[in-house]
Amino acid sequence: MYEKDDPRSSLATATAPRPDAGEAIAAAQYFDLRELAASDGATPEARTAVVRAQNVVLAHTDARTGDELDNGTLDGELAVVVTGASPAFTVHTGHGETRVEEPGLVVVPPGASRISVHGGGPLVRLVEAGEPAWRERAHNAEAYAEDHPRVAPLKRWPEPAGGDAVRCYPLARVPEDPARFGRIFRTRSFMVNFLPETAGPRDPGKLSPHTHDDFEQLSLAVQGQYVHHIRTPWLSDSTAWRDDEHVRLGSPSLAVIPPPTVHTSEAADPGVNQLIDIFSPPRTDFSEKPGWVLNADDYPMP
């Protein structure tokens, strides 16, 4: 499933794609995030595309100087995915103010919060799908009118060491390491993997088709183009069989990949390509690899 030099080849879950049985397999979902929001909208809400998976809601805002993003009063944490194109911003909470000026992950504790924006560019927020105000805004809410039975429900991991606080994890403090799969951070409810920028298309002879047994993968393209290759295993009901999918998306875009589809994403732009993978709850297999989760001291495993 993985090349021998791929860090994922040593995962406990690295098994070959296999047929499956049981509950129906959900369809993959694909979103051009620019098509879901008005780039010239007068308000940040109009410039925000909201989509969801079973356990997480993703809000992509084309932010402008002076925007005030109200996150509401949340029962769980909020995470802000900050890319190289994102503007500087300030997070306001009951704990004070925190200014953010570089790419990485920002984790905001439960409760009321808002974000003041100091430039132009994309900001991506993650909230638990159990938050009603956000869940109901999702463009694809109907796809989750009923829970997908193959996706394990979210059970929050242990509370962070040191209690509630705004935590910032700049990418600049963590150099890329080919022995580690991307740069991974986790919270109680999410795992975010900043995959490295790549120059040019991926070698089509070195793809990595694989499956996940019980969790969705959200692949957020922030630069370039990707072809998402998805194969749905055949179950006994042939009327539910699907053709293989090879869906090309630019950026910003999001693919929601359900279990146990066989999938791999192929960088396709001649320039720079970058994906950020998001999971909810955090992945145990990644967490069990020493050194892979870069903020593991702050967020312990169950």
Rank of each mutant, 00 (worst) to 15 (best):
D298G: 04
V247C: 04
A27Y: 00
D214V: 10
L36H: 05
T48K: 03
L218I: 04
P204W: 07
D298I: 03
A59M: 10
V80H: 01
G111Y: 04
P252F: 04
N55P: 06
P302A: 12
Y144H: 07
E35H: 11
P132F: 12
A165N: 01
G162Q: 04
P259A: 09
P110V: 09
D214P: 00
V256F: 02
T284W: 10
S9V: 15
I184H: 08
S9P: 00
T93V: 10
T15V: 15
H60E: 11
P259H: 06
N273L: 09
A221D: 07
V107W: 00
R52Q: 14
H92V: 08
H246A: 15
S9D: 13
G182V: 04
P122N: 06
R283P: 01
G121T: 05
V262N: 07
T61H: 08
V262W: 13
W134K: 00
R188W: 02
H246S: 14
A143Y: 10
S113T: 09
G205A: 15
L58A: 12
L105I: 04
C168G: 02
S86T: 08
W134T: 04
A133N: 12
V91I: 14
V81H: 01
D285V: 03
A152P: 01
G96W: 03
E131V: 06
P201L: 11
Q223D: 12
L249E: 04
S116T: 15
T65M: 10
T61S: 11
H246E: 13
N55K: 00
G163S: 02
Y30K: 00
L154A: 11
C168T: 15
R99A: 15
K155L: 13
R150W: 07
H60M: 08
L275G: 03
P158K: 07
L154Y: 10
E97D: 15
F215N: 05
P209E: 07
S253E: 05
R137F: 10
P170Q: 09
R52I: 07
Q54E: 14
R242S: 14
V222P: 00
P204K: 00
P209R: 06
G291T: 08
P300N: 02
G163Q: 01
D298A: 13
E128Y: 03
R183L: 06
L36P: 03
F89Q: 02
Y299A: 11
T264Q: 09
P158E: 11
E159F: 12
R125H: 13
K289W: 13
E128W: 08
A88F: 00
T264Y: 14
A26T: 02
V124H: 10
A255F: 06
A38E: 14
T187E: 01
D20S: 14
T73C: 11
T65D: 14
E216A: 09
P270W: 02
R34Q: 13
P110Y: 07
W241P: 00
E142H: 12
G22P: 03
T13C: 12
D277C: 09
V222D: 07
A179W: 05
D298V: 12
A172L: 11
R137L: 13
E45F: 01
R186M: 10
L74H: 06
R188V: 08
H229Y: 07
D244P: 11
E23K: 02
D5H: 14
P204F: 11
R186K: 15
F185E: 02
V151D: 03
R188E: 13
G76F: 09
